[in-house]
Write a protein that binds this DNA or RNA. Sequence first.
DNA 1: GTCTATAGGTTGATAGAC
DNA 2: GTCTATCAACCTATAGAC
Lengths: 200, 200
Amino acid sequence: MTDTTPRRRGRPPSGGREAIREATLALLRERGVARLTTRDVAERAGVSEASVYYHYTDKAGLLRAVFEAGLERLQSAAVDGDGTLLTFGQELERFLEQALPVMTAAQSDADLRDALAAHMVANDLGPHRGVQTLGAHLAAGQRAGTVRPDLDPQAAAMLFVSSCLLRVAQRQFVGRADAPPVPSLERTVAQFEALIRPVA
Amino acid sequence: MTDTTPRRRGRPPSGGREAIREATLALLRERGVARLTTRDVAERAGVSEASVYYHYTDKAGLLRAVFEAGLERLQSAAVDGDGTLLTFGQELERFLEQALPVMTAAQSDADLRDALAAHMVANDLGPHRGVQTLGAHLAAGQRAGTVRPDLDPQAAAMLFVSSCLLRVAQRQFVGRADAPPVPSLERTVAQFEALIRPVA
DNA sequence: GTCTATAGGTTGATAGAC
DNA sequence: GTCTATCAACCTATAGAC
């Protein structure tokens, strides 16, 4: 065997970079951006404050790195159209559950907001990805005869995808403590499938 | 006539309070909470900084007042189920367009986040309101025979309501500059109406 | 690459006159 | 109720040694 062991090329790192990013994300969720200080990030990550500035030039750079890392999973994990509709919804909600806090955090600063928007446009990220994925799946279902032919795949897909967003948003905004009276994912799946079924 | 003229009782105000709140909201949208300072609020409102602290005890109190004022419209305007589905969607989006920035802003501080959540629970605010409103409308449609009887009104309503949220969220997050490839309200309305129509 | 120490600049909040 | 003046705290960022 030649060299299957993943020997890193350049950096023999101490893991400081990652630790800083993870600490930032954790504090972001706990306290929100307004109370996020480089001091606390450094302490939580177990490094000095200067280290933070060494790796990420400034606070904005740190935050940008955090949400770019958090969002890049969408690229791959972007929920393949295979599997059941329930699975799709679960994966989507799981993704949103971790992406939404980061995106809302970016809204707190105009510069960050713009940076995030630019990043999303550049990498073709956004809700439309989920819509397109499910839309394609529905279109395939139409050709297979399992979905009613008079359906607008994109529009229908949006209905379902957005319901996942609403559920996650509600959990994040009003908190998961007191049961929210909004239909569950399972119930929504059942309803959606009933609606898109061929009428004949 | 006795006294139809709305003569205020206690305060012959100079409008300072409102000016401060409006300035806060404006700056909130422009810069985000992270860069919102009481200094700038005062300047924008045309008052001194001390005035801000006189009316609202501290910064958190100011922000709480802002989003309570911004959200109380939901109470009344909560979009009556009359009118067309298109009208309903338009009103809902208009409301979200102004409520969402405030709600995302609250996410930037743990205390504010909790305060907002408590306020929403206490006043029974949240996405479920729209769902229930439209759900009731759909149920009425079922009794009238204009909506297919095997429909789950709540679940179906959620599909539509959430699509409005997604549209607004996309506009706010990625920005309205580059046209987002997500189906328009009109297209969604058309699709939704086609889906809930009786099959017979 | 990581540390300690510190400079420099904001910011939230208060005191006290009017 | 509104102002001016001011403080104390804090936070970002840098300098320089190791």
